[in-house]
Design a protein around this nucleic acid. Sequence first.
DNA 1: TAGCGTTGGTTCAAGTTCGAAGCAAGTAGA
DNA 2: TCTACTTGCTTCGAACTTGAACCAACGCTA
Lengths: 179, 179
Amino acid sequence: MPDGPRSLDAQELQAYFALMEVSSLLRHAVEQHLRADGDLSYVQFQILARLSDSPTGSHRMTDLADGVVYSRSGLTYQARLLEKAGLITRSASPDDERSVTVTITDAGRALVARLLPGHVEVVSRLLFEPLSREDLTALTSLLTPVRDHMRATPPRSAAPRRRGTARRPTGGAARRPAH
Amino acid sequence: MPDGPRSLDAQELQAYFALMEVSSLLRHAVEQHLRADGDLSYVQFQILARLSDSPTGSHRMTDLADGVVYSRSGLTYQARLLEKAGLITRSASPDDERSVTVTITDAGRALVARLLPGHVEVVSRLLFEPLSREDLTALTSLLTPVRDHMRATPPRSAAPRRRGTARRPTGGAARRPAH
DNA sequence: TAGCGTTGGTTCAAGTTCGAAGCAAGTAGA
DNA sequence: TCTACTTGCTTCGAACTTGAACCAACGCTA
């Protein structure tokens, strides 16, 4: 039971650093593979994977953006590329005139299917090799609640779009438009 | 018992997805905080943190790039920004005329010190809150070997710079200059 | 059903990221 | 010590990302 607002001690920092380092390295390796083998970026693959995983083969733009933790405008950009490449289609939603439904095409599914083995190979070699079966189970049962916890709290797209009623995040700094 | 070149089963996929999802969400949250509170990007903070962690307060460019899993040219760019902001200095190495030694300044250390509490707060709230003390220990002991394993295999900058003896990565796709 | 705040997407400008190419300094071998 | 390869870093061009601004469709409520 976490007690009060304690700060990170050495143990915790190690966990945090290891987590970020592992994910960076893994992502980098996967990225290399996807680019070399299918000329896809990591996000693009994620998008296609999520779509092909969906029972309907489609998702709304916003849900995709939240799912892959990406900006909406970034998703618009990527969706345009994927559409141009014939891997997805975009169409207006029947029920909500505003929203755009993204659907994976057969070509998209085929591409995912073609890339998956290599993808899996990379992940296996890097992430799973040093882990036993029990380790995997343990890792999953540790990370899943964390994921849910993170998803539960401020859902990214729930960030208030603060227009009129703008109020600064708190900031000690002036929050310039970046460098 | 896993047999031969098995593919990822559901359990493994879950672990992989959870890992990437958690790190994405965490990184995104941390990024927001760093930007709002100190006008730093995640990489910039990582660079400063690594430097301030070093006994000498300095590192070579390449080592930094490898450390934070970043391209060399990207690091050059970021180093220029950090130098311009007075947070680091760059100087030629005494022993190797080619290499550049990056050193954190007092201002750099001060900034890290100022940002750390908030940083820790974000990480605590998102990552550690749903984990017990034992969970943390377990997570660390799972991820540390993985990190070491990943670091051991192809060290990123060891990628052959293939010049004359160039050979394409294999590609089923034409490997266009990206989209 | 008009008013008003919210939500879904896109566009735009500005900043970032990466790989390829280039250059200089190190290094190994003949 | 000349040649050829390697390594450390920067430059360059092209692609990617992002938040802010915008528009249109929704939803609530009086």
